[in-house]
Design a protein around this nucleic acid. Structure first.
Lengths: 114, 114
DNA sequence: CGCTTAGTTCAATGTTTATTGAACAAAGGA
DNA sequence: TCCTTTGTTCAATAAACATTGAACTAAGCG
């Protein structure tokens, strides 16, 4: 539980598959928009249900895209941006640059975050 | 049949999902390595079976990643690099740069091309 | 201690995906 | 015209994926 792959074990196919889903791409966008502020699962509640979020965030964690750290009753989610960039230079940055501009797949009001 | 999405209909999630598969990422790598030479389905035969190639190449075509053009008894496959770059700048280039370096998922001898 | 907030686990369900092999179609060369 | 090469279609199948809701755990607060 809460296993994070080592940098050298991060796989490009797995990263792309993990981001090839509207909910997870929206999570990526939210995380990228909020650099500095740590987000927790509850911050993504407008995207889907609690248990479904557990599922999607676990997929991103297992792919090596996010780091999840328990903090009291919550889990702080952060991007492993430097890790992915060192392993696959430019890939995550390019995706983020485009994902940030994307409208939220769940209504024009966005996800509520910034 | 042989429907290609218009540039403005190309979707980032769909592209990432299409490339989040070892066979399709290998096809992308082969195409990127062979700029100048047009490839046909048969050039990917070391990756999987004929009918499975039809399936994977159709997915890439429907995602807007490749253009497929009949030519005699074959189909010439080419990357829609400029199209994707105009829609999602940098994304495909970054993925290609990393995919090219990737070992073929099907044996150290690579795919036989190049 | 009891309540609330945050998130997980689990089983169930329906959908999509990947893969196979056999049968088929279409173009080109001998 | 027959044969070969190239690729498609189709049905079947197994596996992976996404989604739900109910039950649960764990931490913090009053």
């Amino acid at each position: 539980m809460l296993d994070h792959p080592a940098v050298e074990d991060i796989d490009l196919t797995t990263i792309l598959a993990a981001l090839g889903d509207p909910i997870r791409l929206a999570i990526l966008g939210d995380l990228a928009r909020s650099t500095g502020t740590a987000l927790c699962c509850a911050d993504f509640r407008e995207l889907t249900s609690k248990s479904n979020l557990t599922y999607h965030i676990a997929r991103m964690r297992e792919a090596g895209i996010v780091h999840v750290e328990p903090s009291g009753t919550r889990r702080l989610i952060s991007l492993r941006r430097a890790d992915i960039d060192s392993r696959f230079p430019g890939v995550l940055d390019a995706i983020i640059a485009n994902a940030i501009a994307l409208p939220s797949p769940f209504g024009p009001e966005g996800c509520g975050l910034q």
